[in-house]
Write a protein that binds this DNA or RNA. Sequence first.
DNA 1: AAAACGGGGGC
DNA 2: GCCCCAGTTTT
Length: 218
Amino acid sequence: MDNRRISRVIGLIEASLGDTEPPVVDRLKERDPDPFLILIATLLSLRTKDEVTEKAAERLFSLAKTPEGILALTEEEISRAIYPVGFYRHKAATIRAVCRHLRERFDGRVPADMEKLLSLPGVGRKTANLVLAQGFDKPAICVDTHVHRIVNRLGYVSTRRPDETEAALRRHLPRRFWKVINGLLVAFGRTVCLPVSPHCSRCPVVPLCERVGVTRSR
DNA sequence: AAAACGGGGGC
DNA sequence: GCCCCAGTTTT
């Protein structure tokens, strides 16, 4: 991977997106940049489609917008509010557990610190980095399945481990792109660089891609 | 019936 | 690294 080349790629993708819908968390952030809401919305979005996540987040946030508020709800009430995201027991329990930890260890506030975020139940690197980038405006690199797939497919890394993709990006991606690369590549990955049968014929990055015409994930 | 949906944890 | 998790919509 080469710094100038990756910059060009991101620039081309950014320019080509036009009015493509950004991912949920990026949209919710426009409405309310509260890191806590971004954290909860990210937990909801786990393996769930964006439109569903957005409605679920709105319904849940109409009931409560703070750890204390959410802890006042039962798992049953949370499950009902977030229908139909799926994984109810798991998600409702995780959300309450996160709120409990926030109250007990972090004074009810979301920490702006990777290690502390990772200490929360149900929070891994993807979630932590998204909260740092979108919730705290920090230059964090959030690698989800889209970012991972696309960076691998471009031929810039060759690994099955998202943390290695993240490390490579930290070395080669100019800092100004760090907190936006996730939103850009998710939008790009949903519309053009699909997991299977990507639309290479209308892809702006073809000249810089080493795997034009692939039909599977990488 | 199977795949897809912006992972995480436990071992 | 591998396996498990567990719900709904879409194909």
